[in-house]
Design a protein around this nucleic acid. Structure first.
Lengths: 152, 152
DNA sequence: TAAATATAGATGCAATTGCATTGACATGCA
DNA sequence: TGCATGTCAATGCAATTGCATCTATATTTA
């Protein structure tokens, strides 16, 4: 593998910068409103997507790019606060099914009221509709498509 | 502030995904080659940019989007391994000047041999030259321009 | 089927990060 | 000058993360 061109380097720098600026703004806004970190939102959204049937921890690893022990402990904390339940699997006794609680749905909804406007501020306000489509399309080319689509 | 459109949401999701995939690949490659995390590289590059005159810790906070205590401790660890020196400022006795050592320059160079090809893999290989320019330009519109340009 | 190997998830311990506060000095203002 | 306020950096303590390993169960293979 060869070295990147200057354009490639600059693109990477800006990708990192754009992401980091947006993300730190989001995390700050959540913390300022006494909300948990964004990772909680991502988990809760995935659980809400599958509508009650539950999801396995290892599925979250792949979907959210987390480490195995990361999921295990994150989920433990979220469960401790009552936003999800862990049920033993009947078909695979090693596993757990994760199921969002009503309280969890409510938290996700409240987090979105903070998170949504921050996305709009960081991305929506800065670009025209055409520019957003172009950017989305180009970013799509960088993403490993064997993975799931991903969460807001 | 209003809620984001679907296009805005998708753009944000892809931005996060593209960044996270690239970054985790980079960190994994560095760790696999017994190198320190990318944050060390960013610091060393900034120090190398200013060529011996040194840089203040608070400047790194803004340039690298780090917390004050984050810089303080990160720099302490890097210093402990001999990749930079901290000198007391004469003009501002509260402050320290950070200066990269020869060993630090050497480490940065070796890290680039891992880092560079990973950037090429994550960005360069996935896009044409025109696409890279377009992407860079669109990402540039998301970035808060009052901040410094940023590091590789 | 028994043994070998692989997978799901948890956990002890060390390293790192976050939060709040502190100490030391600098700056602004009366 | 003398005090109030602001800034630079460090640090104690709690929370989180990383790494390595462990237990339990599933799957493969001979």
């Amino acid at each position: 593998m060869t070295m990147p061109s200057n354009t490639t380097i600059q693109t990477w720098i800006r990708l990192a910068r754009a992401y980091s600026e947006a993300m730190s703004g989001i995390e700050r806004a959540l913390a300022d409103n006494d909300m948990p970190p964004l990772s909680w939102y991502d988990i809760l959204l995935e659980l809400e997507r599958v509508q009650g049937v539950g999801i396995r921890q290892f599925e979250l690893e792949h979907t959210l790019l987390l480490k195995q022990y990361g999921v295990s402990r994150l989920v433990e904390r979220i469960e401790r606060e009552g936003y999800l339940r862990r049920e033993f699997c009947t078909d695979d006794k090693r596993g757990k099914h994760l199921i969002i609680t009503d309280k969890g749905k409510e938290l996700r909804r409240r987090m979105w009221l903070i998170y949504g406007p921050k996305i709009e501020e960081a991305v929506g306000q800065k670009l025209t509709q055409k520019q957003r489509k172009d950017l989305s399309s180009l970013l799509g080319m960088l993403i490993n498509k064997t993975q799931a689509a991903g969460a807001v």
